[in-house]
Simulated assay, not measured.
Amino acid sequence: MHHFKGAIFDMDGTLLDSMPVWDRLSERYLSRFGIRVAERDYVAIEGMTQMQAAQYFIDAYPALPMDAQTLAQGLDELIDARYEALARPRDGVLHLLDALRERGIGMAVATLTARRHAEKALRAHGMLDYFRFLLTIEDVGVSKRQPDIYLHAAGRLGLTPTECIVFEDAPYACTTAQRAGFTVCGMAEPAYAAGVCETRRASTFFVEHSFDELWGKML
Rank of each mutant, 00 (worst) to 15 (best):
A188M: 09
L16K: 06
L75S: 07
G34M: 07
A44F: 07
D139E: 09
L96W: 01
G158P: 11
G104R: 09
M66S: 08
T160S: 15
I45C: 10
V37Y: 04
G195W: 10
I149D: 12
V207P: 08
G141Q: 12
T111Q: 10
Y172R: 05
C174I: 10
H3Q: 12
A108H: 06
A177G: 10
A81S: 14
E168G: 04
V37G: 08
A99W: 06
A153Q: 12
P161E: 14
A180T: 13
L75A: 08
A60R: 15
D23W: 02
M19D: 11
E119I: 10
H117D: 14
A188C: 05
D76A: 11
Q52C: 09
V93P: 00
L86R: 08
I8Q: 13
G6V: 10
G158V: 12
Q73L: 09
R115I: 06
R179F: 03
S31T: 14
D10A: 03
S203Q: 01
Y83D: 12
D10C: 03
E163K: 04
T183C: 12
A53F: 04
A114L: 06
L122D: 15
L78S: 03
I149H: 07
M51D: 15
R40E: 15
R201Q: 12
Y150A: 11
R32G: 08
K5D: 11
Y130I: 05
E39Q: 09
I8M: 10
L75Y: 08
V166R: 11
L151V: 15
V140R: 05
R82N: 11
A108Y: 03
L100H: 04
L15R: 09
L75D: 10
L96P: 03
G216W: 08
R36K: 14
P20S: 00
A85R: 15
V21N: 04
T111E: 04
G104I: 11
T113E: 06
E198G: 02
D59F: 01
L159T: 11
E119T: 14
H152W: 06
Q50D: 15
A194C: 03
A124T: 14
V140N: 09
L214C: 13
A38S: 10
D129H: 00
A54M: 08
K144P: 11
C197F: 01
R90D: 13
A108T: 13
D139H: 06
Q52P: 12
D148S: 05
D10P: 03
P89E: 03
E46Y: 05
L112W: 02
A44G: 10
P171V: 01
A38F: 06
D23F: 02
E198T: 13
T204W: 01
D80R: 09
E198M: 08
V93R: 00
I35P: 01
M48I: 11
P171W: 00
G126P: 07
R40V: 14
L134N: 07
R179G: 02
Q146K: 14
D67T: 06
A87C: 10
C185I: 03
Y56S: 07
F167P: 14
S210C: 07
V166N: 12
R123F: 06
G216Y: 10
A85P: 06
Q50V: 08
L128Y: 07
T14K: 05
H152L: 14
F131N: 12
P190D: 11
R179W: 03
P62F: 01
R132I: 03
R28P: 02
F206P: 07
A87D: 04
L94M: 01
D169A: 04
T113V: 04
D80M: 03
G195V: 14
F133Q: 09
Q146G: 05
F33W: 02
E163H: 06
G92C: 00
